[in-house]
């Protein structure tokens, strides 16, 4: 009986464009740059194409979620810390920028960076005791943080209590509002991709792979885990600070579990460990979730069906699948 087997081979152009030789011809150059440019230009023209106020707002929300998904992917797949604390980062960043803006009267373009830096430090310090935990235990503890903070604010009636803080400045015009988050997402996306390929990024991966060997190499794993959490929580706080200035309001809903769960779903759909994947996942999931609003409570059902479909049929994620198709061709050969 004749047997056939599927064979995957790297495209020649991929092999040729792996190193400096990629600069030798337009074909090889474009093989590398076109997918990247497609994403960058696509993101940049989105605010120009979309005219309705409602969908412009959705684009900003997509970017906020993309920041969270990036930080989740970085922590989970490059440092080995599965964090469900997205809502915690958003909340800390949001409340900090609200305080900076209303109490000290700083303009948004000053209070957002300040909230990012101080928020990252606060989150990292608070998460320090949990760093020795691994896997699902770290996930459970980080899930607890946003819940605890929401209850504390509610019970002690501080920071506006259940009403939240109102009267926060918005951005001076909608172009700044839109392009700030988009550019931040793109910068952090390509920055992180660069970082994980540096020697420092290698250390993060080593901590995930084998923390005992890192200790035996004379490096403190706690320091590097803390550094990774600092980077990731900074990204989350930045997102939180932006969302507060977009909505001109901060409240307990910043600690909502959506911010912890949706980035994970986006990472699953987009492709874990690719960094681009989670951003794409948010670009798909968030608008879908908005479209499904018409179905009312049935929304969650459709949403779940889409998620389950992805997990069953494309569990590797869009980006991993896409990269494979882009870099390799398949053919059937006789065995």
């Amino acid at each position: 009986m004749e047997q056939r087997r599927k064979e995957r081979i790297d495209r020649g152009v991929k092999v040729r464009s792996d190193s400096i030789y990629a600069l030798m011809s337009w074909r090889e150059l474009s093989y590398l740059t076109v997918p990247r440019l497609l994403l960058i230009i696509g993101m940049l023209i989105l605010p120009l194409v979309v005219t309705s106020m409602y969908w412009q707002r959705v684009i900003s929300i997509v970017c906020i979620y993309a920041l969270l998904a990036l930080s989740f992917d970085f922590l989970a797949h490059y440092t080995g810390l599965v964090s469900l604390g997205g809502a915690f980062f958003i909340g800390v960043g949001g409340y900090l920028t609200a305080i900076f803006n209303t109490t000290f009267g700083l303009p948004p373009l000053v209070s957002i960076p300040l909230a990012t830096v101080f928020g990252a430090i606060i989150c990292t310090v608070l998460l320090l005791p949990c760093l020795p935990l691994r896997g699902v235990y770290f996930a459970i503890v980080t899930l607890m943080y946003p819940l605890v903070f929401a209850r504390i604010i509610e019970a002690m009636d501080i920071l506006g209590g259940t009403d939240g803080i109102m009267g926060i400045d918005s951005f001076s015009n909608r172009w700044i509002e839109q392009y700030l988050v988009i550019i931040v997402v793109l910068l952090l996306l390509f920055g992180l991709r660069r970082l994980v390929n540096l020697d420092l990024g290698l250390i993060f991966r080593a901590v995930k792979d084998n923390d005992q060997a890192v200790r035996a190499s004379g490096m403190s794993i706690t320091n590097y885990k803390a550094l990774a959490v600092l980077i990731a929580s900074g990204m989350g706080c930045l997102g939180g600070a932006c969302i507060v200035h977009i909505y001109m309001w901060t409240g307990l809903s910043l600690f909502a579990l959506d911010f912890s769960i949706l980035p994970i779903a986006a990472t699953v759909i987009g492709g874990a460990g690719t960094l681009v994947g989670p951003v794409l996942g948010c670009l798909i999931l968030v608008p879908i979730s908005e479209l499904l609003r018409e179905f009312g409570t049935l929304r969650i059902v459709f949403y779940s069906i889409i998620l389950v479909g992805f997990i069953v049929f494309r569990s590797e994620g869009i980006m991993v699948y896409g990269q494979r198709k882009y870099h390799q061709f398949e053919r059937w050969i006789k065995v």
């Binding site: 290698l202 080593a206 060997a213 890192v214 490096m219």
Partner: peptide, 25 residues
């Protein structure tokens, strides 16, 4: 280590980049 602890997801020579990153190295 008795049970070897390499960084399995990395290339062999990249395994050594990690100790070389340490303060002592």
């Amino acid at each position: 280590f008795q049970i070897m602890r390499p960084y399995y997801s990395m290339l062999a020579y990249k395994n050594l980049v990690i100790p070389l990153f340490s303060p002592r190295a």
